[in-house]
Design a protein around this nucleic acid. Sequence first.
DNA 1: CTTCTGACA
DNA 2: TGTCAGTA
Length: 125
Amino acid sequence: MRIGELAERTGASPRLLRYYEQHGLITAERSPNGYRHFGEDDVARVGRVRDLLEAGIPIKIIKLILPCLSGGEDIHFPVPDPGLLAQLEEQRDRMTRKAECVLKNRDAIAAYLDRVRGPAEPARD
DNA sequence: CTTCTGACA
DNA sequence: TGTCAGTA
């Protein structure tokens, strides 16, 4: 399929898909006219890239773990490379700190809501 | 009409 | 990221 269809099916704009390809997050074959050509599996791949990006993981790290994603959400490293592990440990710690920050602010907002709206309203969480 | 590359806000 | 230009 061409970039337009992949864009429709993934929710990512063609502009963004070209950006992903430019940074090695996805690969595309080229038609003689220069048009990018993607496969069915790229729909899922783009989805995974977007999930990782949404989690705040830098493209640099995504490129490292993307080839280790086997269709599912699981990650596996056949031959753990020291350098790779170090970068992933660093990323894990950043994510931990970010998660703590998010939780902290969520609790603050929840507490605020409880005070102004009153404990009577559930609708939270 | 769709896509491509490069560039600018 | 969106969008504009000038093509293929």
